[in-house]
Design a protein around this nucleic acid. Structure first.
Length: 272
DNA sequence: CTATGGCCCTGGTTGC
DNA sequence: TGCAACCAGGGCCATA
């Protein structure tokens, strides 16, 4: 999303803001937000974990950042037309185009911060960075007692994985979501490391997963990773690897999909 | 440190 | 057919 929206806003000047859902701003008031944004120019557009970061400049000097989190149904669009479920929109270059944050469920954030550290500090490593090595993962798992699925969803442990990609990565690594992290042996940790990178790289390449009317690129196009799903949303269907039925369970209030044959349950967690 | 559950929201799907 | 219950790419917070 950061990469796709970048060419549409880079270097452009931001004008008036229209805020139709206050909580989207994440705590600031309409006047404070508007004053901070108006007249700034878009510098770098980058990403950290699930945050899209838009660096702002005023007279070539740093002037804070927009921190954008799409949560479930957030979407970024540059458009002259009205966009359904607009929550925040910013004039671009005083012209007809607007930079719009649309969000059906209103969970997303489009907030201004002077300093991005407070929000971005404390996040785990990027799964596609050099920092995230199989050695790092092996060591990190060794001293954690949590179940793999909630641990991998924890952004302070590893940043950027969501429900779909955790299920897909665990299946590819042949690991049960309830397995305790400390009981993952070195070979399994290495498989998990590789699976996480494989799944994420491929999903980014295919521009994400679109299985209903939400979840679109800024062009309104669907992604294509949903065609690669091995387990997510495939409960009751045969596993592509072994043919047995994909199961669905609830782990940490999240729907969790797995193949019980490819991802056998560890003895200690055998009761659930 | 870990686990659990409520809450924030709306819309599409499921099931009676 | 109609309507209520349930579920959804996420994350915060309080409590135990």
């Amino acid at each position: 999303m950061a990469r796709l929206i970048r060419p549409k806003i880079l270097g452009r000047q931001l004008g008036g803001a229209k805020i139709s859902w206050l909580r989207t701003l994440g705590g600031s008031t309409r006047p404070a937000f508007t004053k901070a944004i108006e007249g700034t120019r878009v510098g770098r557009v980058w990403r950290r974990a699930k945050w899209i970061v838009v660096d702002l400049e005023r007279d070539r000097e740093p002037a804070g950042h927009l921190l954008i989190h799409l949560r479930m149904t957030g979407r970024l669009v540059v458009s002259k037309e009205a966009v359904p479920f607009e929550r925040v929109s910013l004039q671009l270059d005083g012209g007809a185009e607007r930079f719009v944050f649309s969000d059906v469920r209103k969970f997303g954030r489009f907030q201004y911060v002077r300093d991005s550290q407070s929000v971005l500090d404390g996040l785990g490593p990027e799964p596609l960075s050099k920092e995230f090595t199989s050695d790092w993962l092996r060591a990190a798992l060794r001293h954690r007692k949590r179940q793999l699925k909630p641990l991998l969803l924890d952004q302070t442990f590893l940043a950027g994985l969501g429900n779909i990609y955790v299920d897909e990565a665990l299946h590819l690594a042949r690991l049960h979501p309830l397995r305790s992290a400390e009981k993952v042996n070195a070979a399994s940790a290495d498989r998990l490391h590789e699976a996480i990178q494989t799944v994420l790289a491929r999903a980014i390449e295919l521009e994400g997963s679109s299985f209903d009317t939400f979840y679109r690129t800024p062009e309104g196009q669907p992604g294509a990773y949903q065609h690669q799903f091995q387990v997510y949303g495939r409960d009751g269907l045969p596993c592509h690897a072994c043919g047995s039925k994909i199961a669905k369970m609830v782990v940490g209030q999240r729907g969790t999909h797995l193949c019980r044959r490819c991802q056998p349950k560890p003895r200690a967690a055998r009761s659930t």
